[in-house]
């Protein structure tokens, strides 16, 4: 019962703040959008907790709200975006956006309505007390190669970012 209430609360707040990220009727400031993105991420972490993915909820808050959004905020404040505040979304743009939302949602909804209520072979509640320890074991044993590849990818991204944001490439 309480879980249902929490699910609807978190789902509604996630979607509401996501809409406010994209189309805020009060403020056109990109910083406001980024702040509502933080809210979206936080409520989404609540949904992850509901799904028993506690470690991922923590990672979501640490990585997204802590690192990615801060990066967005830094870039927004580095660039001079005064013109964005006075800009309004054009008629064509808003119609296009609404139509795309509608089409994508109808598509997904049609795909979901044919689904059986339970996934075949589902065992119900996962019997994992703590997710973090088995996750670490799997990450460093079964998924070691992808993990290392990801670390190389992050290194490449870091070098690439430094190169891209240098003034002269020579």
């Amino acid at each position: 019962m309480i879980q249902d209430v929490l699910f609807y609360l978190f789902a509604f707040m996630t979607l509401l703040s996501a809409v406010l990220v994209v189309a805020n009727p009060v403020s056109r400031n990109p910083v406001t959008s980024a702040m509502f993105l933080v809210l979206t991420i936080l409520f989404m972490a609540g949904l992850f907790v509901q799904l028993h993915a506690f470690f991922l909820a923590a990672v979501q808050i640490l990585v997204y709200a802590g690192a990615v959004i801060v990066l967005f905020l830094f870039v927004i404040m580095l660039l001079d975006l005064k013109e964005e505040q006075s800009r309004r979304i054009g008629k064509l743009g808003s119609v296009l956006g609404l139509v795309s939302v509608g089409v994508v949602f109808v598509l997904f909804n049609r795909a979901l309505s044919g689904l059986p209520a339970k996934v075949p072979g589902a065992t119900g509640q996962p019997s994992l007390e703590g997710l973090t320890a088995p996750l670490g074991h799997a990450l460093f044993k079964q998924y070691l190669l992808p993990f290392e590849i990801l670390s190389v990818l992050l290194l490449v991204a870091m070098v690439g970012v430094i190169l891209l944001s240098k003034k002269d490439l020579r």
Partner: peptide
């Protein structure tokens, strides 16, 4: 799945309508 479909649709609308590259 419905929540995630709605969230995806909102994100797609944002990517299509906003003209600022950051947004």
């Amino acid at each position: 799945l419905i929540v995630s479909a709605l969230l995806f649709a909102v994100g797609l609308a944002g990517a299509l309508t906003r003209r600022n590259a950051i947004l």
